[in-house]
Nucleic acid binder design. Structure first.
Lengths: 186, 186, 186, 186
DNA sequence: GATGAATGAGACTTCATTCAT
DNA sequence: TATGAATGAAGTCTCATTCAT
């Protein structure tokens, strides 16, 4: 692994465990085994490092979301697959999940996030848009619908990662069904 | 306002604006116009200050949730009222909303939060529990249902506070209906 | 001596010995026996510390310049006394001399220096102005005349402090006479 | 321009603009467009780079000083020409002027400077020495006389470069005359 | 109750320099 | 000759906290 990747990986581990606030550059240095100067050779500053990491993870998630989607599938079928894709990405990458959630709520760089999201989530946005137009989804503001669904996935994923509930096929199906019921026209 | 309240109020303002991470004691001192020693006279340390604030806000929210609930109301009617209560508390107190969300995601003091939540939300928990027993709500894990609903309210509140969508009676009703559809047995 | 004065005194000693460039805050901390935080309690930052010191020394020099000046004295007599006053201040306070010279050439804060100088040197400026008006001094730009004289004093003071020449009453008189000959109308 | 010259030129620009103190190797790298290793290929270290530059400039100035001097000229005539030579070098090369002044006042490498000066300024030293011996110049310490004159030139040059006064033939003549009056026997 | 001077560990970052390519 | 990734000591400054008044 290149030094640059070592730094990014270590930062992910630390921020997901300790949070933004408690992840000092000093800690990254110690854990990654890289010299302080090396960090600043690859990244302008701490913020740039975090931003880079965020951006890469967002892209990864964006790709994960649409994996195995077949245009022939029915709308509802796609919904279930997308939901599972996001969910799987979250529980298979709990550190990335923590990081993305943490950063999403963090009060800085909000504007840029929006712009990036827009591009990585374009297919998802198109999908929801078509659902509204086809009269399958409730005619609520597009991004509200999307945020509701993302929120639902995160709620389940968080509880499983935190071991507050146990994962089971039936629970997953029910959770998706619940989410579907909240966005579809009944 | 007492010095103690000045400190708490200023902390709320700063944390909601800058986040946890960027709210230093030094900033609280400067903005509140209180001497550093005074803070440590009223609070054991910074953590105690934040915890106190969090606890007070959580209590406030706990009370807001059940306001105007009449035991004679139908289950669904109560659901709509509770939803509106939480929602109103959030958009009428955007700083408190920000603070609570921030703190909820923050990786420290998680254990104690749970205990406190448990006590302030007892009526809410009982309400959801009865809904499951009565066969009105889906038989999903109790806290999962509660978290889903809280997540739904927060999603709408955040978007309105961030001015990503505009509040309207119809939107609110639809949002609650959507939330209801996701937890009730269809 | 107050902590604040300890810091200023130590800074003077270090800057005059090592120069601007080599005087780190860490060195000031070590030599003054004060904690790093204390410096930043009294001064906004390193620059503010240096500026404060500069301003105080400039004021001191401004006062020294006009000491023992009697308005009854002849113009030339005053010139000799002023020259000696500056010179004495320099060789009796070699560290202050070094510091002032160093800082005068330093490329930052130049604008503010000018403003400060203007106020501390008002009597000196008035004196030279009257000399020109009375036809005693060459009609060269006012500040050029002043700078020439200051430069002459500094040249002698520096060589004596550096022990490149030895001070002697006769040398001093000759040096002042030389300086006088360069500004007076011959 | 060779890489070596690019480095020297950039260093000159940076030091004259920012001063010694603020001119980092990193800045030189960025501005010159040269790789860090390249600097250390051509110069032993930063000090060697600065010293080399200083030495080259000192030599240049040394040559400029005696340009167009004709041994047949009268002593005073030579004085005026030398003065103009130094002055012209300064205002035509303001960055070199700044650099040389900065370095002269800098507290490091002082010893070697003296040695170098000695060799480049030999003709100038001889000139002043003969002036004293011939009874034209005041019998003041040789280097004091030289420093006074250099100081006078620098005073005028600095004020013109800083745009505190405007250059004019008459002013220049008067300034040189003033300088001459301060060193010649009256 | 309230003040603010003082602390020193630790924060982020820049520095001059090296070395494998 | 020239490159630029890598280094780690040292830089400035902020942090939460204490304590005499």
């Amino acid at each position: 692994m290149s030094k640059r990747d070592q730094i990014l990986q270590t930062t992910l581990e630390l921020v997901s465990e300790l949070g933004f606030h408690a992840t000092s550059v000093g800690l990254i240095i110690k854990k990654s085994g890289v010299a302080s100067g090396t960090i600043y050779h690859h990244f302008k500053n701490k913020e740039d490092l975090i931003d880079t990491l965020y951006s890469e993870l967002k892209k990864e998630l964006g790709n994960a979301i649409i994996s195995n989607i077949d245009q022939e599938m029915a709308f509802k079928e796609k919904f279930f697959l997308i939901w599972k894709n996001i969910f799987r990405f979250y529980i298979e990458n709990p550190m990335k999940f923590e990081f993305l959630e943490d950063y999403a709520n963090s009060p800085f760089v909000r504007k840029e996030i929006k712009v990036i999201s827009q591009s990585y989530y374009k297919p998802l946005i198109n999908y929801f848009e078509s659902g509204i137009q086809m009269g399958i989804l409730r005619s609520l503001p597009l991004h509200f619908l999307i945020n509701i669904v993302f929120g639902n996935v995160a709620t389940l994923a968080r509880m499983i990662i935190m071991e507050e509930i146990e994962i089971a096929d039936e629970l997953l199906i029910n959770a998706i069904q619940s989410s579907w019921d909240s966005v579809k026209i009944n």
